[in-house]
Each structure stands twice: as structure tokens, then as C-alpha cells.
Design a protein around this nucleic acid. Structure first.
Lengths: 341, 341
DNA sequence: CTGTTAGCGCTTTCAA
DNA sequence: TTGAAAGCGCTAACAG
């Protein structure tokens, strides 16, 4: 069951079948119709592998993420796929599991499948692996890491503006003791977010208390524990920013566990705006980083470079925006010390 | 950069390079070493498309799910991928978005990519699409739908035992008015779960009140609304089972919204045991349906049929297990009517 | 507008 | 154990 059989049944050459499949203009309407009939009755599905081999274009775009289980990614994957499908392209997803070795495996897969471009949405990336791909002229796009070059684009995230908005919001509610729960410090994105926070605090003229910064792991359990540590301190923050929403959600649990209330006792702001955050109790105020926007830009960046060889790789910027929900409120009257209420 | 260049550099034929790559026994250790050297220095990556075309085996296994954004699936995807990688195979993921048309697109993709097997983890599946695949002798495995046949396996879920355990747990806590929030009734799996619930209630000799069954959508918002409807009724349940965890989490929000407490006012049991459920406040008691187990069995079912043509397609059964956390407790003293507290 | 034909890169008999 | 050569199914010049 192949193109030859279709050709025979339609009484044309395989070339004509191929042209019909690929929507070439230069096929008579009737001929095309006859071919389509044949395809239909034979239930013929062109072999993608042969297609890629013959044409040199795989119509496949790679998407490398660190962990599909991290709620930040599924939405990104879905959006990326949606755009790709819109352009008649396919997506090859690869998980690194935060493991450098797996990253190498992922890149190998991309290379072997001859993808037409790769979106690298993990924050860590080995230089030589990048070379491996870019030296093969594979368009690349990074999320907030890497610098635009020939065929390499970058999507920068303006953390500063997003976090400034969050700090401003808190400060306008009267908070001055603002804590922060970071992501794992071996993650670039986590470091960048933390830095944006400290800068923002300084810019606002607030005092920066290193004691009020704890490290989480970008998961709920890390947020839970970090918040517990924060709550155990002599002086505690009246508001806490977190490096991502999962951390905030975990932190919220720790707060409830002590019999404290959000936002009454502590205000909480997350980062990312994952779907879940609209449904927590109370709804989580957070800084939205639109995955749909990221995905759309990422795909287009790759596609444009590939299709339109002139496009050289560009820098895009995404503005996170503050989403005010119910986890932030005015600073409560001081009830002193470690054991309020 | 292809197998020829490697062959030239290693001073062997392309056949020998191919054999080396594929770990054929009949290559001298020294020859193989020389080839490996050449591959290394040339940074050669065999073209998967050509490989598949030449050999007729894609080493690709399809995984069809309905929505990557549904927290049930990421873990399944990850586990499936892990097993596949262990066996040196790759995974092609396809989302249907619950849309029959997209399902057709997914099947087409599988067919075009000449996958070696397909795991269909969506509950709905067009009969003719199945034929399309099975008539091409593609091994198939379903999740709790479809019957074992030549090359078709099925993973049955023993909902009855899982839900029985949940009802028993509740009943032992003194609950008799047990409500249920179902999934969307156009979903087979949702109907099956609902049926398991009604059967279980009857078996326990409890009264089945149709008024205490509301329809959700397997998402948080649906759970939230369904629970709100339940709370507005004249007679309300003291405990509620839900068709999946997201529904339960949404329901929890609705309960809090009314100033009620879990489990003090209402006990809640979910289904699935998604990662999140361990971290809600209070932790969600739920019936665990192990995604890891499902993924492992699904892949093995496909792989065994493919590798070992003798395997004919089998029926597997998965036992869900009750995970007791903090969202269930003894029934509270009655405070009557619609407006407790 | 349609057909002929030479690849695409790898695998796999079949000989040697 | 190794090599030569014929495909695998499709695409893309190049003719006509």
C-alpha cells in the first residue's frame, strides 16, 4: 500500500499523486479528483519517513522542556502544538527531567529526526549541545537564556517589570516586610527571579532582609517547607512573593497549617499564573507569564527562520502582568512576635 | 554527513557501519571500534527517517491522550516515555482535545509515521478508526474500553473495588447521605465511574438519592459549580465522592466559599490521586489509579505483541486503592437545614 | 499539465 | 566477517 498503487488505480504517475498530495497548483482539477478518489478507496496514508527523506524537510519541530509534570509546561506544549498544527507542522516533545544527560539524549533525538527547528524551554543548556544543533543550521529559540545570533532567537522575559508590579502592589497595601521564596538556586531562571526581587525591593527603597529569603524547589513541598521556615523566624514577613505558583500554593498550605489566614495574616503572590491559581482558596494573586504567548512566539520564530531564510533570529520580549486575586490584602495590625492570635 | 562518510573514514562499507550502529554480533571488535571512532569524530547521527524506511520498523510508539492539560495525563506520559526509553523506543504523543475530529487527525499521524503500536488512553474511540489501525496490524492497547482481540489489549480498571473501598470508608465514619459529582456524562469513563458509585451504594444497603448526584466536567470549575448546587439543596450530603480529583479540588473551594469546613461539615473523596492531591488543604482522601502502572502495562502490552508475534493481545486489570488523607472524617452532629453554623 | 528518473540515507539479502 | 547492490516510499528536477 503505497504511492505506486494509488498511481496505478488513478492511472497517473507517482509524481502526479505526490503533487496532488502536496497541493501543487499544476494538477488539473479532474486529475486531482481522480487521485483523491484513489487515495480514499485505498485508504492511503503517505509515509512520513519517506516524505522527509525525499524532500529533506521533516515538518517536525522539537520542543524541549524539563518536566511535563510541572504545570507550567502542559499549557505551553498544548499552545505550541496548536500553532504548529495551524501551520501544518508536527511537534516532537522531549523531556529532560532536569537531567543534563537526558538533555543530551533529547538533542540526539532531535538531530536524528532531522527536525526543522527546536524550541528549548529549559533554562539550562550545554553550550556544546547548542553548537551541535546550530552548526547543522537548525533554527533555535530559547526562553530567556541565550543571545540572538544567526538562526538563534531568544524570548526574553521582563521579570523586572512583573516583579516590580507585584512589589508595588504589596507596598501600596502597606507591606514593608516582604519575604521571598526562591526556586532552586542551581536553576538560572530561579536566580534571575530572585535577583529581580532583590533589585525591586531596593528600587522601592524598602529594606532588604536576607533573612526573609528562603529557597524552595519550584514545587509545592518546597514552598511548604520554605514558608514553614519563614514562619518560625523571630521577625516574619507580612507578605511573601514566590518564584512560581506551585511554591505559593505549597506555602499557602503551610500558612493554613499554623492556623493563620491568607491574606489576613500573610499576603501571598505567585508567579506564572498556572491554570490552578485561579481556583485556590483564596484565589492566588500572581504575575502572569502567558504560556500561550511564549508558545506562539517560539514557534513563529523557528518557522520564520526556516521558511524565510532571510529571518536571522531575533529577540522578543514578554511582559508579565500582575493578576490581582484574593491572596493579597492590607497589612494587618501588628500582633507581635512569633505567635499571633 | 551520512553513513557513507563514516564508512569512508572507517575504511569499511556502509553495511558494516549499519551493523555496528545496530549492535550486530558479526562485526569484529576492532572494526566496530574503528567505526565508532569515525562516528565520534564526524559527530554522525543516523537519520531516523531513513532508518525507519529501510527497516520497516519505526521504533515509535504512539500515545493518544485527550488533553495534556488534564493533570491525569502528564504523569502517564512521563511514565510511558520512561518505559519506552528503557526499551530503546520512542514516543509520539497526540492530543485529541476531546474532539472526535482531532482524534481522526491523531490516528492519521500515527498511520503516517508508521508507529509500531498505539496506546489509546482516551475513553472515546471511533470504531472505524480502530479498524483503520488494526487492519494494518498495528498493536493497540486501550484503557478500560475495548475488548482483547488479535493484537488488541485492554487495561481494565476495577472501579467497583476502588469505589467500594471509598464508600466503605465513608460508611464506617457514619455517613449515610453520600453525594456524587460525576464527570461529563458524554464520557464513557465518567459514566462507568458513576455507575460504580450507584452500584456500590446499593450494595452497601444505603439509600440512593438521585438528588445527590450532580454532573461536573472533570475540571475544577465543574466541581465547584456542582458542589455549589449540592450545597443549595434542601437536604445535603454529609460526604461527597467525586469522579476525579480536580472535581474534588474545585468542590473543596465551593465548600470553603460557604464558610464550611472539610471534613468537619462535609467529607470529600476524589479519584485518581494526582500529585496535587497530597498537597491540598486538607490533603485529599482519594482512590489512587496508578498512572505509572497503567503506563508500564500499556507499553509492555504493545511491545510484547510487536516483538513477540505470538502474544495475541491480553486483558490486564488494575486495582485502584484508597489513599486516606485528611478530607474525610466522622459525620458531624446535625445542625439542620440549609444554613448550618 | 504530466511522466520519467534519479536520488534521499539506511537496511538487508546475497555473495564472497 | 565484510562488501555490493537492491530496495524502502516519496520528492524533485527535467523533459515533453
Amino acid at each position: 500500500m503505497n504511492i505506486k498503487e494509488v498511481a496505478r488505480l488513478a492511472k497517473v504517475s507517482t509524481a502526479t499523486v505526490s503533487r496532488t498530495i502536496n497541493g501543487s497548483e499544476k494538477v488539473t482539477a479532474e486529475t486531482a479528483e481522480r487521485v483523491r478518489q484513489a487515495i480514499e478507496t485505498l485508504k492511503f496514508y503517505p509515509n512520513t519517513n519517506a516524505r522527509a527523506l525525499g524532500s529533506g524537510r521533516s515538518s517536525l519541530y522539537g520542543l524541549i522542556i524539563s518536566d511535563i509534570t510541572n504545570p507550567f509546561f502542559p499549557e505551553l506544549v498544548k499552545s505550541f502544538e496548536d500553532v504548529a498544527v495551524q501551520f501544518g507542522q508536527e511537534v516532537l516533545i522531549a523531556n529532560t527531567n532536569y537531567d543534563p544527560h537526558r538533555m543530551e539524549v533529547c538533542v540526539t533525538r532531535m538531530l536524528q529526526r532531522k527536525v526543522d527547528g527546536v524550541a528549548i524551554m529549559t533554562s539550562e543548556m550545554d553550550e556544546h549541545l547548542i553548537d551541535e544543533m546550530s552548526s547543522r543550521r537548525i533554527p533555535l529559540v530559547f526562553l530567556d537564556t541565550g543571545t540572538p545570533q544567526k538562526g538563534i532567537s531568544n524570548i526574553a522575559i521582563d521579570y523586572a517589570s512583573g516583579i516590580d508590579a507585584a512589589v508595588e502592589h504589596l507596598s501600596s497595601l502597606g507591606h514593608t516586610a516582604i519575604g521571598f521564596i526562591s526556586g532552586p538556586m542551581d536553576l538560572t531562571s530561579a536566580r534571575v527571579r530572585r535577583r529581580a526581587f532583590t533589585n525591586s525591593i531596593k528600587r522601592k527603597g524598602l529594606k532588604l532582609d536576607r533573612n526573609m529569603i528562603e529557597e524552595g524547589n519550584h514545587r509545592m513541598d518546597g514552598g511548604h517547607e520554605a514558608m514553614a521556615r519563614l514562619l518560625d523566624k523571630e521577625v516574619r514577613p507580612t507578605a511573601v512573593l514566590t518564584s512560581n505558583d506551585m511554591t505559593a500554593i505549597g506555602a499557602m498550605g503551610a500558612i493554613f497549617e499554623r492556623g493563620l489566614k491568607v491574606p489576613h495574616d500573610i499576603s501571598l503572590i505567585g508567579f506564572d499564573d498556572i491554570e490552578l491559581s485561579a481556583f485556590t482558596q483564596p484565589g492566588l494573586t500572581t504575575v502572569r507569564l502567558s504560556r500561550q504567548e511564549i508558545a506562539k512566539i517560539a514557534f513563529r520564530a523557528l518557522y520564520d527562520v526556516k521558511e524565510n531564510a532571510s529571518a536571522k533570529g531575533a529577540e522578543f520580549t514578554i511582559q508579565p502582568t500582575l493578576i490581582e486575586r484574593k491572596s493579597t490584602g492590607p497589612v494587618a495590625a501588628r500582633r507581635g512576635g512569633k505567635h499571633p492570635v
